[in-house]
């Protein structure tokens, strides 16, 4: 969560709770609930590394509120993250490993494994499609759901290939 926090702070100084709210607002329903503790832990690491600084703001009768801001080093680090292309997702596929090893060991029918996996992907695709109906104009959510659906469609096509080449 380092870079997302740096990116949010590029918009101006903020305290931890504001950063949490900003993330929730940007990604809405597609983001799992954010643990505030994780935000504060990340902020203190960023501070340790000299990428953010903080000012304590006095509050009546409560501990000081800490307002974080980007340092020069933080701005440079963020610039690098923004400028670099994000690496393509590597194919880390637990199912494929299961298929290859279970087939080699003769402990499962590969065609059955593939069929069961296809069930799971189809069901996931169905759920995504149902969820897509409920995004009510939330463009960020709609775009992410579209991306996830395209990945699942590719997974299903790959299962067809697995079936042709390893299905028996």
């Amino acid at each position: 969560m380092r870079f997302p926090l740096l990116a949010l702070l590029a918009g101006g100084p903020a305290h931890g709770y504001e950063l949490k709210q900003a993330l929730e607002q940007r990604f809405g329903s597609v983001l799992p609930p954010i643990n505030a503790g994780q935000i504060y832990t990340t902020l203190s690491r960023l501070e340790r590394d000299g990428l953010v600084g903080d000012d304590a703001v006095a509050q009546n009768g409560r501990p000081n509120k800490r307002v974080y801001s980007l340092t020069e080093a933080g701005r440079a680090e963020l610039g690098g993250w923004v400028a670099d292309a994000t690496p393509a997702a590597r194919l880390k596929d637990d199912f494929f490993i299961k298929l290859v090893l279970a087939r080699a060991a003769g402990i499962a029918d590969p065609a059955e494994l593939i069929a069961r996996q296809r069930d799971a992907y189809l069901q996931a695709l169905r759920e995504l499609d149902d969820v897509a109906l409920t995004t009510n104009g939330d463009e960020t959510a709609a775009l992410l759901i579209e991306g996830a659906a395209l990945h699942l469609e590719a997974d299903l096509k790959w299962l067809d290939l697995c079936e042709q080449r390893l299905g028996s």
């Binding site: 969560m1 997302p4 329903s29 597609v30 983001l31 996931a124 499609d129 409920t134 996830a148």
Partner: peptide, 14 residues
Amino acid sequence: GDATSVSRLMQLEV
């Protein structure tokens, strides 16, 4: 699908 499960399905991480 369970329409409340967007975030679980997406597994988006920041």
